[in-house]
Simulated assay, not measured.
Amino acid sequence: MQGTVDGFSYGLVTPVVAYLMACLGGALGLRCTTRSMLAVHSWRAGWLALGSAAIGSGIWTMHFIAMMGFTVKETPVHYDKAITFASLALGIVMVGLGVFIVGYRGATGVALFTGGTITGLGIATMHYLGMAGMRLNGVLRYNTLTVAASVVIAVVAATAALWAAGRVRGLLWSVGASLILGFGVTGMHYTGMAALRVHLHGAAGPPAGESSAALLAPMMIGPLVFLCLAGVVVLFDPLMVMGRSSRVPAERKPGVPAHPEAARAGRSPLPRAGQGSSRSPQSR
């Protein structure tokens, strides 16, 4: 017997809120990725780790906000907490691999393709592992072609967003990239849900027990708190917000520490050969 699936039991509320959460996580993560390319080598890993966790948390939160509107008419839906949180951890790790590749190798060529592919696969893995944590009186089956399309959407969106994070410094451009990432991730989610069919184990009565919203909301408290803390970091770091300080020379390679005093004076931070020892103390 095939179950009657409804992914929009709250109307447009869950898709819109889910999209906004994906955009928030993407915006924070991409700003951290951009910031890492302006940091000295010892700080770069920290910014990239923060960005990876922000993107992963935002995507995971988006997924389960969208799942609040998911119901099967003939059976209650529950969630295995271990698998649900495993999807969060695995998503962050795989997104982190892609972000670190772009953060250290640059957003071009093979590095961008590899990083975008891994990040996109991380998004898809998080989605389908989270779906595997569902518990109901039936089994989930998917249309293979539609699943493949959802994975392609995730990879393309992730690659475009990482390109923007590595190549674009302006705040507005990064906001645009986060909107693209949010659109891609949300599109991937609902494309994947369109591939879903629920086959029930015999007849079942009306679902009883707590709603999906009541079950999922407590599990999202931790990731939401983390996103708020990441937002505070972004707001209180001027370089994180603007992407490039006015005191940082434009020609400087990402990750190489700047010399603000020399940049303002328009000269090299190091004395030219023969100048340092020939000048008197009064002239320095």
Rank of each mutant, 00 (worst) to 15 (best):
M1D: 14
Q2A: 03
V5C: 03
G7L: 11
G7Y: 14
F8M: 08
S9V: 14
L12I: 15
V13R: 10
V13C: 05
V16L: 11
Y19H: 09
Y19Q: 08
Y19G: 09
M21H: 00
L24V: 13
L30S: 03
T33V: 14
R35V: 03
H41V: 14
H41R: 14
R44M: 12
R44H: 06
L50I: 13
A54Q: 01
G56C: 10
I59E: 04
M68G: 14
G69Y: 06
Y79I: 01
I83C: 02
A86Y: 01
S87R: 02
L88W: 06
V95N: 09
V95Q: 07
G96L: 04
G98A: 01
V99I: 14
F100I: 02
Y104W: 11
R105T: 01
G109V: 05
F113W: 06
T117D: 02
L121V: 11
T125I: 13
H127P: 01
L129N: 07
M131I: 08
M131H: 01
G133V: 04
G133D: 05
R141I: 06
T144A: 12
T146E: 14
A149Q: 07
S150L: 00
V151C: 05
A157C: 06
A158Y: 00
A160D: 03
A161S: 15
L162E: 09
W163H: 09
R167G: 08
R169Q: 11
G170L: 02
L171V: 05
L171A: 11
V175H: 01
L179T: 02
G187E: 07
H189F: 09
Y190N: 03
G192C: 05
A195C: 12
R197L: 11
V198L: 03
L200W: 10
G209V: 13
E210N: 13
E210P: 04
L215D: 11
A217K: 07
M220S: 06
L239I: 12
L239F: 01
S245A: 06
P249M: 05
A250H: 06
E251V: 10
E261G: 13
G266C: 12
G266F: 15
L270D: 05
R272S: 12
S278N: 10
S280N: 08
